[in-house]
Amino acid sequence: MENARTFEKVCAILNEYNHNYYQLIPILEAVQEEYRYLPEEVMAFIAISLGISPANVFGVASFYSHFTFTPKGKYVIKVCDGTACHVKKSADIIKAMEEQLELQTGQRTTGDMLFTIETVSCLGACGLAPAIVINDEIVYGLLTPEKAVKLIKDIQAKEVPGSNEPGEH
């Protein structure tokens, strides 16, 4: 019944924003909070409800990096690749995490839907470079590849009990 309840929320969100198409971006943001991505049929529904074309909604949604059209993992790790982080070797952090999660080139989300790794232009935490943020909430700064891998292992240990003993591999 997951879907239906989420969908009820979509209706509620549309009502909250008065079906005003100027509010398309906040509406999409709120909807993405519910689904963790923007399903096509929901975008089409939003378009029709707001009286604009589905192509228009897709055009807006696809413009902003915040929106995603495929389901993301439970933990979305944004790795900062701003100037400060870049010169402090954020690339090594990404590589270490990708290796730990066995992500293939171009693959951003793990098969078990636990992790998504993205790079972002700047988290504004340049004083702490290199930095990452998990689920837009907690910033981890002054990272090293080892620290980054440990963060992931800790989550893995919490989420999949017994599957991952820290320090293995």
Partner: peptide
């Protein structure tokens, strides 16, 4: 908005 990589004053 401050999207510049390397700036965090407004923030």
């Amino acid at each position: 908005d401050e999207g510049d990589p390397g700036a965090f004053i407004d923030r």
